[in-house]
Design a protein around this nucleic acid. Sequence first.
DNA 1: AGATGGGGCCCA
DNA 2: GGGCCCCATCTC
Length: 804
Amino acid sequence: MSIASVIVDVPAKQTDREFDYLIPDKWKSIIRPGIRVVVPFGPRMVQGFVTGIKESSDLKKLREIKEPMDLEPVLNDELLQLGDWMTEQTLSFKVSALQAMLPAAMKAKYEKNVELTDLTSFDRMHEDVRSLFKHRKTLTWKEMLEAGKPSLFHKELQNGNLEVVYYVKNRLNKKTVRHVKPLLSTEELSEALDSLSASAKKQRQIVEHFLHAPESVSLKNLLEIVHSSAAAVKALVEKGILAEYDEEIYRDPYENRSFEETSAFRLTDEQAAALGPINAAVDAERNDIFLLYGITGSGKTEIYLQAIDKVIQNGKEAIMLVPEISLTPQTVKRFKERFGNQVAVLHSGLSVGEKYDEWRKIHRQEVKVVVGARSAVFAPFQNIGLIVIDEEHEGSYKQEEPPRYHARDIAIQRGLSHSCPVILGSATPSLESFARAQKGVYKLLSLTKRMNNSTLPSVEIVDMREELRTGNRSMFSEKLFAKLEDRLTKGEQTVLFLNKRGHSSFVMCRSCGVVINCPDCDISLTYHRSNHSLKCHYCGHEEGMPPVCPECGSDHIRFFGTGTQKVEEELGKILPNARVIRMDVDTTSKKGSHELLLNAFQEGKADILLGTQMIAKGLDFPNITLVGVLSADTMLHLPDFRASEKTFQLLTQVSGRAGRHQLKGEVVIQTYTPEHYSIELAARQDFDTFFEKEMEIRRLNHYPPYFYLALVTVFHEDLIKTVSVTEKITKYLRSNLSRQAIILGPVASPLSRVKNRYRYQCLIKYKREPGLNALLKNIINNFQQETAKGQLQIAIDLNPQMMM
DNA sequence: AGATGGGGCCCA
DNA sequence: GGGCCCCATCTC
């Protein structure tokens, strides 16, 4: 008798282990590791992942697997192992790790119903219950509760007229299209045609169609061809002439798009020098990790494309990771143009169903390349020849909810399993990666020149304090304004970048100075012009803009801070002739709008592209000769040790949008702290000096890459409780970690209260603490009872990207 | 997570 | 003694 080890879909400490189940004989050939199954778990049914097959179990009484949910394993051995590794690395539940590797469509959906036990039970029930079961034998649990009368239902359940039935379903199914095909040969069809009555005109037409074209056709198309209704088809099906069946299809997010094939560009000497070692590692199947450090516009993408091409020629597969924000249609296009239908795309803009279908193409080995955001690193390829992470410094590669994995770590781990190279690419590498490259852990490949013989744009820093002193109170410095005008007359394009992070438009009363905060979070509300409302960006709380100050009743209540909408308005005043395209969360929320706006800009339908973070990357239009950064330092003062690094990266990226082709580019950076090294060095595009400077600061302050970090955050509604739990944790760690570890806390989290829960944290900086994970697990176990009830929450983030 | 079932408490 | 709520316990 074989037995399956199953990880059940119950993400809780107590169920975070394998459970043994008997495999019924009929499923024996199907059930293997990596298959999802439906299993009885206590009184209900849950989804589970088979992780192993064995011949015996420590338990005598085992229950049987109800049924498999897949015919082929959805996780191969490598991914199952990766799941183990990830569970250990991120201290998450095993199910969460396994689930994270699959598309959302494959997460189980649970139903709980109340059903009649048999045909006669209806008659035996109380009439109040009976009235609900007229014409139906099932009520959902919710419907039952809404009906009231719990005691009546209870009685019927007790005496066996009703039973509770649990269902486990896929959240989404394969999409099918109804097809029709003839069941008869051509001769038989013509005989059938003769036997049809003359009045059945439509039926005769359909049969005639199949005489000419005997192949299968979708019902929709057939009806269009013969101008008929489904009824006529039905009739023919009943006569045994035709058959209807469902054919599986893929939802194609790029259905209405055609891609012109491109071939490899000729590489510059520098590019060729960088591609050489990569290709060598691809051929040798060697797990080298390359840091491709190339300035903006130096042609990193072409190197990726050619390396991937090599991988495909070698009969292997490649994973290409791109940050969500730069996974634009423009990016996708470049890969589709080069590799055609060998490419699958995975990003958040796709519907759940589309993502599922793209995943299936990978799973069934119908594609060779996947281009996608963070989670695409789990693409179920069997034979990976290369993994590329573009913009490797991007914080979005770290998942901020459990399992808190970093795609870079996963990529390196998979590179090891597949014995293939990994490329980390960036114009502004993370300090961690660059430090490793310097130590020789990663192999450094540099691109120092731009393609198209273009030079880096010249950058000017404008001191906005000076502007204020000379009486310019607008958000545009004289210099930027002059250059904007100049571009307008020349017919060249400008990109204006507004950094929104930490710079929302809050509402303040000018009389009493009160700022309107979210009632549940310690953060000011943001004004939204579109519906004249105030919104909390952390919990979603929304209220109307008050006409008078809620504190003092004064009507001098106004919003402060700069939003893109406000900049747009201002532009309209000072440059009434300029055509402006605004790109922010509001204007790009609709599917496809992102592409639409960019296309319009590319086609020259606007002079100025105004936007937030989302325009910092990937834009590559020849006519952009001016980039303006409206205020460079909004991010600089965030309470995060990476604030300088982030600012440097962002400014460098934005500046890189200008002058990428024939026309020379200029950049104007407006700031209130022009002397800050990350602004100064970004203006000079001097990564090397920035790296040295920032490394020194990290060394002095014991931050990465000199130290590792672990962040423990405690959440609770009660402030005293929050602090005392954090205190206990901090003490426990202090007394159990080595002398070299630095333990900070308890301190209030930078976001001290969200959704009416206080947050306190303890930060651990360490170099080598082999026992740390075990200690952290102890903490989780220790507070398990309290956290299970939901009042208290403890989050542990190893190598956090965000300190908030 | 979610169901169960025992213990404690109130009531007739 | 019966009904109800709370909380610890268990789920192969």
